[in-house]
Design a binder for these strands. Structure first.
Length: 679
DNA sequence: CCTTCGTGAATTTTT
DNA sequence: TTCACGAAGG
């Protein structure tokens, strides 16, 4: 199995609660995978009793494919339950939905759906100017993830609570769950129905959780309940890589694990096998700037390797060009492959310019997540049809359809008003539109008729046709009605191909038919929209998505204050999480890490300028000097004294102009040739 | 009933 | 810059 002594011990210690504190690159995913194999092959544990949980769809798919490579037996593999918290528990909820007053075909609302609903509620209460719908959504999410509903913490007189209650009620009426509901309702299910809990306790006798540092209260409580009978709970985590606190992740879960589970065995994985010594050294240096951390000594036997490189681009475009050229050079002259490279960024929108340049230079790439395709308007339209067809109570999706089909807002408003006044479902009204006294355009009536008869027809066949057939009909219907650009048609085609593959795979692999609701579940909670994983392509993604992955050469881009670290994290306690995020980014690299930053960059059509990220300065001494561009190339981070302005530190330097942060006067740009600076 | 024009927000990260 | 939304005017 090729494991070190501690790893071997971890793999073969099966019973009881176990906490593994694992540094970056110490082989923790490998340990999980070998442990699963050991349980099945050596311990003869029934694979059906194993539950492995991850946080991102990407990590789940990665684990599945790595396991498959070793086990290579689909019959065994399909018995193991592997997936994200959300996907696994939403499947369980579908099975038990009737107990909670839901139908098993419930719709999953993404953030945009939630926003839409919250906006509507605020408008109805006439407080859309008082409360910000996005803040409310975050607050609702926070509420649910912290299980406040179980405690007495809620302040029932606030405006927020009023909105919260309506939101919950509406979701229930529409047979819909948002992402947080999936966890919340699972909690409620296990709390309220002990016999159901027992059923799943007996099924999942062995539970493994990857990236445990990212669990929130709600998730942690589910694991606690599930493992309570057999206590075979195995968690792996690294507090230094905790980067999901915005989703309610609580580091205290990992810190208090051994208090909650008696007789916990604790292991530490500190040897890094992934990266060169230079990279390990720099990442240790970075994380040492954080005050809150569990002491860990990550070390490596690997060679020193190349020093970390840095590139100061003049613009975001030039940054991308530099990266593209670098990749071209290394693939032609140094025999690296495209798939050896990853380009990481802090925010999704940064991918635009990178994609553009890579396309120009004909470098094949694979983008993960992205401004995810489900948020594109036309795709959203398609999926509102699919969601409504699947769940006739889903008025959010129906209203989306109406909004995209009917130009005249007044007409929609009158329909909604009638629905409210007479307490009749909107779908019912549009089906009998001529019976109602509405000022409505004749063409609109015709349109509604066409839509309604289509919906009726297709809903009639809902259980006869598989997901592929249904989606195909909807796409044909949409294309018949509207003139879409070719780009959109291509996207539709891609989605269809994706569905086709999925339906086929399910049939061959598991011998089950895929209906529309199965496909929607897959689309929202399982598909990481990345079929070409193994293809020889450059990977580009956010730092968040890169966790758990590794690449020989990694570019960390946009290392500027206000970008990375993000503006909203500067000057508060969240800066430590940003630093952990940078730590995650840096530790993805096996051989070479290249940090890039741009002097100016486009944001909303405006050129903005930022000073280099503090993270560059924090590891300044470990960065290869020859890559520090220009003639004042070795003065970054240097403490200086200015004849007029006093002492300060050099943040950036472009040819003759240095950006200096003065102790008393703040940030100023100084012409070096004036010779006012004493180094 | 329908078009046009002006204003203001958007982009932190994932399920 | 781009997009959504709403007011105003055709």
């Amino acid at each position: 199995m090729n494991l070190n002594q501690i790893q071997h011990k971890i793999v073969t210690t099966i019973n009881g609660p176990i906490l593994v504190v694992a540094g970056a690159g110490s082989g923790k995913t490998r340990v999980i995978i070998y442990r699963i194999i050991y349980m099945i092959k050596k311990m003869r544990i029934n694979p059906e009793n194993i539950l492995a949980l991850t946080f991102t769809k990407k990590a789940a798919n990665e684990m599945k494919s790595r396991l498959f490579k070793i086990i290579n037996n689909p019959l065994i593999l399909k018995k193991i339950t592997i997936g994200t918290f959300h996907s696994i528990f939403s499947i369980i909820l579908r099975n038990e939905a009737h107990l909670l007053g839901y139908n098993s075909n419930y719709t999953i609302y993404d953030n945009k759906d939630s926003d839409y609903l919250i906006k509507k509620i605020l408008k109805n209460l006439n407080i859309e100017k008082v409360l910000d719908y996005r803040k409310i959504r975050k607050q609702i999410s926070n509420y649910k993830n912290n299980l406040f509903f179980l405690s007495k913490k809620n302040n029932k007189n606030t405006l927020f609570y009023k909105v919260y209650k309506i939101y919950v009620k509406k979701c229930h009426q529409m047979n819909s769950l948002d992402f947080d509901d999936i966890l919340l309702h699972t909690n409620y299910l296990f709390y309220r129905f002990p016999n159901i809990l027992l059923k799943y306790q007996n099924k999942f006798k062995y539970i493994l959780v990857d990236e445990y540092q990212d669990t929130n209260i709600s998730q942690n409580n589910i694991i606690k309940k599930l493992s309570n009978k057999y206590k075979n709970i195995f968690v792996v985590g690294d507090d230094a890589q905790s980067i999901y606190s915005f989703r309610g992740a609580k580091i205290s879960n990992i810190l208090n694990f051994h208090f909650i589970y008696k007789n916990t065995k604790i292991f530490r994985l500190e040897q890094n096998y992934r990266s060169t010594n230079s990279i390990v050294k720099a990442s240790n240096k970075i994380i040492s700037f954080n005050k809150n951390q569990i002491y860990k000594k990550v070390w490596t036997d690997n060679e020193k390797g190349e020093e970390i490189k840095i590139y100061n681009a003049t613009s975001d475009e030039e940054e991308a060009i530099y990266i593209a050229n670098y990749i071209l050079m290394y693939t032609t002259k140094k025999k690296f492959k495209y798939k050896d490279f990853a380009i990481l960024y802090r925010t999704n929108y940064q991918s635009n310019i990178i994609e553009l340049i890579l396309k120009e230079k004909k470098i094949p790439y694979n983008i993960y997540g992205s401004i995810s395709i489900e948020h594109r308007k036309e795709i959203k339209d398609l999926f509102s049809y699919l969601k409504f067809i699947n769940n006739i109570n889903d008025e959010v999706s129906l209203l989306r359809i109406l909004n995209s089909e009917i130009k005249y807002k007044k007409t929609i408003k009158s329909i909604i008003n009638i629905s409210k006044k007479k307490n009749i479902e909107i779908y019912n009204i549009i089906n009998n539109i001529e019976k109602y006294d509405i000022n409505i355009n004749i063409n609109t009536v015709k349109k509604l008729k066409i839509i309604c008869s289509f919906l009726k027809k297709i809903r009639f066949n809902l259980n006869k046709f598989n997901a592929y057939q249904i989606v195909k009909y909807v796409i044909i219907f949409l294309l018949k009605k509207k003139k879409y650009e070719n780009k959109i048609k291509e996207k539709f085609k891609l989605i269809l191909i994706n569905i086709y593959k999925y339906v086929k795979k399910k049939l061959r692999f598991y011998n089950i038919n895929t209906y529309l609701s199965d496909f929607l579940q897959y689309f929202y909670l399982e598909d990481d929209n990345n079929e070409n994983d193994k293809a020889n392509k450059v990977s580009i993604m956010t730092v968040h998505l890169s966790k758990g992955l590794e690449y020989p050469i990694v570019f960390i881009t946009g290392l500027e204050e206000n970008i990375f670290p993000s503006k909203s994290c500067i000057g508060n306690s969240q800066i430590e999480e940003e630093r952990r995020l940078f730590y995650v980014a840096l530790t993805r690299a096996k051989k070479i890490a290249i940090l890039t930053y741009a002097t100016s960059r486009f944001l909303w059509g405006n050129k903005i300028t930022n000073i280099p990220s503090r993270f560059i300065n924090e590891i300044n001494k470990l960065i290869s000097i020859k890559y520090k561009k220009n003639k004042y190339n070795n003065i970054l981070g240097l403490k200086i004294h200015h004849k007029d302005f006093g002492s300060g530190i050099i943040l950036n330097c472009n040819n003759d102009i240095a950006t200096i942060k003065f102790n008393k006067l703040g940030i100023k740009r100084i012409l070096l040739s004036l010779n006012k600076i004493i180094f």
